[in-house]
Structure formats: C-alpha cells, structure tokens
Design a protein around this nucleic acid. Sequence first.
RNA 1: CGGGGAGUAGCGCAGCCUGGUAGCGCAUCUGGUUUGGGACCAGAGGGUCGAAGGUUCAAAUCCUUUCUCCCCGACCA
Length: 435
Amino acid sequence: MKYSLYFAPTSKDVPSEAEIISHKLMIRSGMIKQSSAGIYSWLPLGFNVLKKIEHIVRKEQEKAGAVELLMPTMQSADLWIKSGRYDDYGKEMLRIQDRSSRQMLYGPTNEELITEIFRSYINSYKDLPKNLFHIQWKFRDELRPRFGVMRGREFLMKDNYSFDLTFEEAKKSYNNMYRCYLKTFLKLGLTPIVLRAESGAIGGNLSHEFQILAKTGESTLYYDKELENIDPSKANIEKLQDYYAAVDDQHNPSECPINEKQLKISKGIEVGHIFYFGTKYSEKLSALVQTSDGKNVPVEMGSYGIGVSRLVGAIIEAFHDSKGIIWPDQVAPFYVSILNLNTKDLKCNQESEKMYSNLCNINIETLYDDRDIAAGSKFSDHDLIGIPYKIIIGPRDIKEGRVEIENRKTGKKNKLSIEEALNYIIKKSKDSQKL
RNA sequence: CGGGGAGUAGCGCAGCCUGGUAGCGCAUCUGGUUUGGGACCAGAGGGUCGAAGGUUCAAAUCCUUUCUCCCCGACCA
C-alpha cells in the first residue's frame, strides 16, 4: 500500500478524553474514531489489526474442532423470556421495538440463540459432541464504558458453545477450550495467566478467566511464575489448573500455597472467559438429546468468550514504548515500511518503487511511504503505527547502493545492500510465519 | 447509578469572575526554500461559542432547563 493512497490519519495531539495509553495510541495512529460513548468506527489501520486478530482466533478455534457460523446481532426477546434472562440481564441489554411493536434486543451474548439452533436440528447422542462458534458484534450498555475499545459498549467477541451428553464429556470440551485459549493468546504474542472465576450472569459452576500480562493492566495478578512458561500443546490441563493464580482481592498472603520465590506479581488484562454451565439453558429451552437407552436428556453446555476488539487495546497495552505501538509480527497491520526519505530524488524514487514491487510480488504486506513530507515525520509516523521493520531509503546511502533496515522493537539499524535488505525481510517474514 | 469535571475553528486551550470587535498554538490551504528523526519564510481560509429559553440597548460571558463527553467508584469480553 502506498501511504499517499492510504487513510491513516495520524496526529501528534490526542483528544483530552483518552486516558490510557492504548486508547491514546489508537487515536493518534488513526486506528479508531469514537462515534459515541463506547462505540467506535474502525479506520483502515485499526480494522486491519482487528481482522488479523480475528483470523488467529478463528484458526485456533478451527484447530480445536469448533465450527463457525454466524448468528444475528438483533434477537427477538422471546427466547430470552423463556430462559428467564430477559428480566435478569437488566439495563445492560439494549431493548428495541420493531415496527410492529415486537420486543427485540441487540444481543449481548448468544446462549439462547445457539441453544435454539441446536435444539432445532440435533436430537441424538450420536450427533454429539458439537462445538459451534461465531465472531460477531455484541452490545452491552455498560454503566460506564471506558478505556477506548477495551471496554466499549459495542464490541467484537468470539463466542463458542459446546454441547455434550454427559458431564465428563462436557468437561473434556471445557478443557479442550482451555487449551485452545492458551494457544490462541500465545499465538498473538501474549502471555496468558488463567484464574478461577465466578461465573456471574452466565451461570454455572466451572469457570476460568484468561488474563494477559501488560504492565499497564487493570488487575493485579499473583501467580506461580511457572505459568509464564507453559506449553499448552504438551501440558496436562487438569494439572495446569492446580497452579496458583489469583487477582489481588482473592489473594491472601497468609494462605498462599506457594513460596515467595515462586510467586510472581504482575498486572493483567482480562481477554477471555470460559464457563461450564451444564443444563441451565438446555432445560429451559428444551434442548434435549436422546441417549442410547432411549431417554431424552438436556444437553450439557459450556460457553467460551474472547474479546476480539478488546485484544487490540490489550496488545497495545502489552507492547508499546514512548514512540508508539510495537506490534507483534502476527498482528501488525503491515509487516514492513519503506521510507522514501526524499521523494524529489530520482534514485530514491526508483529504488523505493522497485523495493515496493518486489515485496508486493512475494505477498509481504508493505506500507510504502511515498509522501512528500519531511523525513522526520515519516520516522515518527511509522514508529507510532508500530510496523515491525522499516526499510529506509535515503539519498545519502542509496548513492552507494545501500539502504538501512530498522527493527521497531529493538531500534537496531543495519546498513545493507538493496538485495541483502530484501532477503533479510523475506527471511524474517518466513521466520515469523512459523510462530 | 453515586461523586467530580468539561463542552469556544479539525485537535489542544485562553477569554467568562467584572456583559460591548471571538483569540492563541498545532493542523489545513497557496507560493517559495527544504527533506537521515515530527522543517523554515511569507500569505490565506476556517466559528450559528453544545442546544433551547430567559434577563439586558447589548450575552461565549449572567439566570433556568436540557443534551453530550470525560474522570473516580460498584459491574463486565
């Protein structure tokens, strides 16, 4: 993408409403624009990252055996009245009437709908287990939306629902998702810490929340430092759940089962939550399956959520410096920038164009800064946007056939020949795809 | 929902107390000089002062109502 054609309205100034760093950086880098309290437009850069995160979440769901579908944002109140949550959910639920005065609502979650879908098609234990997910916008009319996209009223969530015949099977599904979540957050470059949780409005008795480490996080976590070095593809999930982890109000130093050396204290942000809730909805909505001995029993369910739009903010909270965002390679909106430092220099233009088309030809996402502005502004913009690598093409070095590559994270610069630079980026890009 | 704060140019703010020509910085536009870490000179455009009502010869400024946004708390992906 040529910067001159792109739409990334960066700025030095931040509107005074932004308080936390991710919110400020998202506004400054032109990722989002607030539309009203807790509701945002996603500008190209923000949308790009959102899709990348969504993609990684989706792939991990699929690997774990979940199947994607898409349920509507608008739901009829009927099912919610049946489940009893139409009254329970309170003012957080946005209620609307359609033209014929039917009660509608903008879905804050989808247990009722998915149960109804399941009920309509599945009647036999032979069709179990099933695990269905979708990635859809939700609306919760929060008492107080804040922190930009981290706590919006409208937000993008991946939610999935497991259906099993027995508790034992349901627990397997639950642990399967537990593993899947660890993998997902690691894939995003984050460090997940899992806590036992209250199950809240969703209901149920087996529940964990997934936090990711970020020095500016909201909650303070106390946990066994071993949890930072988990390999979820090998670990035994039941055993993992025995490790100590607590948020500050659960943590009691005198009762803490691990010694001081093992205990680590860090800040975290909640990005996922999983619940087992058994037959709570299947009973109320008559989602029954027939067992091998001919009985009809309510299906055992669990639900699992990842805040996809929240993750955009959370990742920035985890990875930034005084200059701006530092995207992990997997979610960066572009993999590499070309900074043409002088667009009036023939050689700079030629070599920049050539580099750009070479990178495009091998499908490396490139932002080519061809704007006629001061070099310093380009450096600042690309640092702010957080693209992992810069290829700096300026008149000074290009005369000698050289360009400079800068690593956004380390700040390290390398002078290389044009060809070396291209190969370097190709190699790095391949390495990062293996992650 | 309780407590606090703010709405004046795209953004950040001053002006309000003590009523009388709406201002500053950044951004934008034009011309020129620049271009290796947010350039410089010269010029220009841009406002129903959140909205409604009231007081007054006169309201950004005083009064009333209202809307919106932000911060702290309780709740949450």
